[in-house]
Amino acid sequence: MGKFDNHGLKAISPLGGYEPRVDVFTGLQIREVTDRALASLAARQGSENAVKSAAASYLGGALPEPAGWGEHGVFSAWWMGPDLWMISAPHDSHELMAADLKQAVGEAGSVVEQTDGWCRFDMEGPRCFDVLERLCNANVRAGKAGDATRTSMEHLGVFLLCQAPGQVYSIIGPRSSAASLHHALVAAAKSVI
């Protein structure tokens, strides 16, 4: 499948650049993340346990509980809804992860490639709480590492993944609105910092 890695189409980032965008503030960095492949995994009716165990062998660890996310080696996964998860892995090595995952779970699950359905911005630094409270209603100050919250920022539905409370978060939103989401994040950061 090597040929998929070197075809003739050059990718651009959700913000339209050839390199991911980085914005730096005192005590905060907002970084566009483009190097993750995504695939959604839904349990088939009655195969909830089967898909969990098949996914666990593929990922090397259990699928996360509701409103949570977790990492296993190169993989990470977050809960999207009842019997529905998003799986993530490095793009360069796993551009075709959806097909591999489908093979792993077989009839037990439905897999859909989601890599380019989303844009992701990682927010890092001690000012995370102050900036996030201008953006969404999630109770981030009471949150813990491993929380995956579906919330909205400036009218955009996003997933907010807490990596380290108050320090590191991933914000995953709809790719077509990447510029609007980025604007919201940067405006909030400028407002606070």
């Binding site: 809960w79 999207m80 809804g81 529905l84 579906r150």
Partner: peptide, 17 residues
Amino acid sequence: PAGEHRELWFHEQGDRS
């Protein structure tokens, strides 16, 4: 009813339940 009502809500900006 002015009172108890069972109604359908969709968690559209959430888990889609």
